[in-house]
Design a protein around this nucleic acid. Sequence first.
DNA 1: TAGGCCATCTGGTCCT
DNA 2: AGGACCAGATGGCCTA
Length: 181
Amino acid sequence: MEQNLQFQSQLDTFLLDCTAASGQLSPWSSFGCQSMFPDAQLTFTDLDVQSPGAQGACLGEAEASSSEEALEVSKRRARRLVTHQPYKVQRHAANIRERKRMLSINSAFEELRCHVPTFPYEKRLSKIDTLRLAIAYIALLREILMSGCDPKSYVDECMKNGYKNQTNAIWNTSGELIGTF
DNA sequence: TAGGCCATCTGGTCCT
DNA sequence: AGGACCAGATGGCCTA
């Protein structure tokens, strides 16, 4: 946990440094991420052409059926074009924020993994397995509470008979849920 | 080699 | 206006 905080603060400092670097784009791509813009001198027009997302957006815009929609789309585009001088800088800052956001989500997943029981030999739970197992685990705990039985004997009983909760998900600590929620 | 998982980038939308 | 959140696209890595 403490390591986490330390890492977070180091990351914050680093990210701020990158952003503050005289408004220039930092060479983030050299830090292991695959930048869509290997050339930092790309113009906005280049971005429009090269970005797959932008292509999709343009496609969607082209598909706007009604004239009102088309008008709204072109207005939106114009607004974008007008405010684009700092577009690259804004986009880069947004990317940094997004990475930070994903990091915080991932650290929350790590924390959740610590609370979901697995066997030591099991490989690291994926995100989706972590969520599903957490749901099943909570359901099990709830059932133990509702039963009023001794938790250990309840679990022993489950192990003996094969656990099947009320949502039809079969409890399996290897991260595989047989059946559906 | 295909499929699963993941990180990253991106544009859109909503909220403050 | 700017930030948070989201979902789609893409490419890398790993494993069966």
